[in-house]
Write a protein that binds this DNA or RNA. Structure first.
Lengths: 203, 203
DNA sequence: GCCCAGCCTTGATCTAGATCAATGTCTTGT
DNA sequence: ACAAGACATTGATCTAGATCAAGGCTGGGC
């Protein structure tokens, strides 16, 4: 935890308006970021102007660390999906923390392993599951409020893209689930009515 | 490099027959492996008996390290696709190398970042590219012999699965590419005749 | 307030690629 | 050498989900 104090000392807070970019795919990397409030879309763009939302970062999530640790250019762009505040930890501070503090280095190693694990999860979600399965899983994994209402961290469009379904399909699937009484779509989120039934759709 | 010597001292060689498993998905992890010869399929299985080849490991590639570093159960199974020899580095040896040697720890951190990067590549291959694009990219990325002939590291079936296309589609795409004179399918590999044209299919 | 642009929903159509089927061709074990 | 099974190729069909199209809804700027 003294690691955190050290890093905090060398970090700064940045504020992003909706649509503003922390960095662009291909930029040399100069820092990693931690979301303090708001939501940040981490987006990968292919040529032919298609794009894919790799991650929707909510408060507590970090992004850009892979590029810093791997000494590579930014592999994706980071765009605020809503007005956001982030902690910007400069590359130099992170690197010297790694260099100086063996314990910090080890804990990063562990968290990188979890990152890789996470991507493997996304990967076989894409490969082994259909649209309904991915959506059901996503809803179940979302942190839910005390009343069982989950709050969607971004527009349905972005979430659909992240799950690799068109927004039309996303809309239709939610409709069907609602018709079957497994969820109910409220104005500010989604109420999960039958988690067991939702789980049946997975895999 | 003295790190390597230390690890080698605590490692053993194992031999796998075709079809034999180094470990199964869900096993507690006890070691990481490095392929010395042969090919090892790292396979993720979903329920409903579908499976996905996450990685086809050729000599020099390692597998299982993510589980060791993350202190988790094996997230996939490892099955020899051909008779293989692997170096088995026990969990304990790896962990004490990490604990004792800060420099080793840092270099692992860098290589884990590359791993993550690799998976992001797979991910947007799946999402942003069609079957032809993925296959073209795969062929171009394969290490080619001096004569420009690339050797396929496993059966077409396994490669097709890894690229997330059916083996039928894989077959048809190769056929089309051959008909257009961009590749030629030899008995022991594929001759790339027009790399530029192949690149056009990407993204 | 009113307008505009971007979201969301619903319906109709289209298509890449899966699946099914049939046949041919290697391997591998006995 | 032979049989049995896996692998590979090719053609015919099917389908999940994309894309196209058309309104309705909403929130931010003037």
């Amino acid at each position: 935890m003294e690691d955190v104090a050290y890093l905090a000392e060398h970090s700064e807070l940045i504020r992003l308006e909706r649509g503003e970019q922390a960095f662009r795919q291909g930029d040399p990397c100069d820092a990693m970021y931690i979301v303090a409030s708001g939501t940040v879309r981490v987006v990968r763009l292919g040529r032919n102007q298609r794009e894919h939302v790799l991650h929707l970062c909510v408060p507590g999530d970090s992004f850009g660390e892979v590029a810093v640790l791997g000494e590579m250019r930014m592999p994706a762009s980071a765009i605020a999906a809503s007005p956001s505040v982030c902690v910007k930890v400069p590359k130099g501070a992170l690197q010297s923390a790694i260099q100086e503090r063996h314990e910090f280095c080890r804990s990063l190693l562990r968290s990188m392993a979890m990152w890789t694990r996470h991507f493997v999860g996304l990967l076989d979600d894409l490969v082994l599951q259909d649209a309904l399965g991915r959506i059901a899983r996503y809803l179940l994994d979302l942190p839910s409020g005390p009343d069982g209402v989950v709050h969607l961290p971004a527009t349905k469009k972005d979430i659909a893209n992240h799950l690799h379904v068109s927004s039309e399909t996303f809309s239709r699937v939610l409709r069907n689930l609602a018709d079957e009484g497994q969820i109910s779509v409220e104005q500010n989120g989604i109420q999960i009515l039958d988690a067991d039934a939702l789980m049946q759709h997975e895999s």
